[in-house]
């Protein structure tokens, strides 16, 4: 029986049930974020003072916050910002990380400079660098994306550079070079295709980190403006009511854990599938 490569890919990917579950959870979260206006039971900003800080119940499945807003609805809308920012960070850091990683790995003369800059950026803890950048750039959703991209690009550079260093010595690249294939084509076709899988794995991890980091920044008041519901801002504004209404803090946090965990599990599944050596070790 002939099997399409895509089908084979999914079959191998989901051999572990946990990976399948995580993937489905992720799909559900993303769908809810996309379809928020149709899925959410209430407007996320609808204030109802009489129903403030109500515990989870029939009317509000996950309770209400200090303004009587429905927490479930806010989590669903919050997914848009939280995951949107995370996804944007992934796109930006993948693009620049791959570019610089390829250049550093292929052209030895650039390697020293690029890697020292990477070292310098990685000498600072993620959240410290992020908060510094946001402080300098000004707090907005765009600048949070920019700051977190600067934080996570070095990780991609390291991964891509390491793979490039290995791949550039492989016979097929040498053969291409000997046949007179241009450097640009070697980089963009031969090497890029082969670093794609480690980059893809890294992407899922960075997605998870970015969701966590965005929440942390928003919590510190150095992220997106508090009017925009993200999971981080929900916890930040809810924390002073945690004594009387724990659900205000509990559920947005669970949303973060669920999203980040699913991403991580899918990334792990991807890596185990793509890296035969690791797969054996499991």
């Amino acid at each position: 029986m002939e099997q399409s490569p895509l089908l084979l890919f999914f079959r191998r990917m989901f051999r572990r049930k946990l990976v399948l579950i995580a993937f489905l959870v992720l799909c559900v979260i993303m769908l809810m974020a996309l379809l928020a206006p149709w899925v959410a039971p209430y407007e996320p900003t609808a204030i109802k003072v009489i129903r403030r800080l109500k515990p989870p119940g029939e009317l509000n499945w996950l309770g209400t916050d200090e303004f009587g807003r429905d927490i479930l609805s806010r989590i669903i809308y919050g997914a848009r910002a939280s995951l949107g920012i995370g996804f944007a960070v992934v796109l930006v850091s993948m693009t620049f990380g791959t570019l610089f990683g390829l250049l550093a790995g292929y052209f030895r003369s650039l390697d020293g400079l690029v890697m020292r800059v990477v070292d310098a950026l990685m000498a600072l803890p993620d959240i410290l660098l992020a908060i510094f950048l946001v402080a300098v750039l000004g707090a907005s959703a765009f600048n949070v994306v920019l700051a977190l991209s600067i934080v996570y690009t070095p990780r991609v550079i390291r991964v891509v550079r390491a793979s490039t260093l290995v791949i550039r010595e492989l016979p097929f690249v040498e053969a291409a070079r000997a046949l007179g294939v241009s450097t640009r084509r070697i980089l963009s076709v031969h090497i890029l295709l082969n670093v794609a899988s480690p980059v893809l794995v890294q992407a899922t991890f960075i997605f998870a980190y970015a969701v966590l980091a965005e929440a942390g920044l928003s919590f510190l008041g150095a992220g997106v403006p508090p009017e925009l519901p993200t999971w981080g801002t929900m916890i930040a504004s809810g924390q002073q009511y945690a004594d009387q209404a724990f659900w205000v803090v509990l559920f947005p946090g669970l949303a973060i854990v669920l999203a980040a965990l699913s991403l991580q599990v899918v990334g792990d599944g991807l890596r185990d599938m793509l890296d035969p050596k690791l797969r054996k070790a499991l």
């Binding site: 998870a208 929440a215 981080g232 916890i235 803090v249 946090g253 973060i256 980040a260 965990l261």
Partner: peptide
């Protein structure tokens, strides 16, 4: 895997 994906501030609030 779970521990790596818990925001520390949230876990802190829960612990408090």
């Amino acid at each position: 895997m779970l521990a790596a994906n818990i925001p520390s501030f949230w876990l802190g609030l829960i612990f408090i």
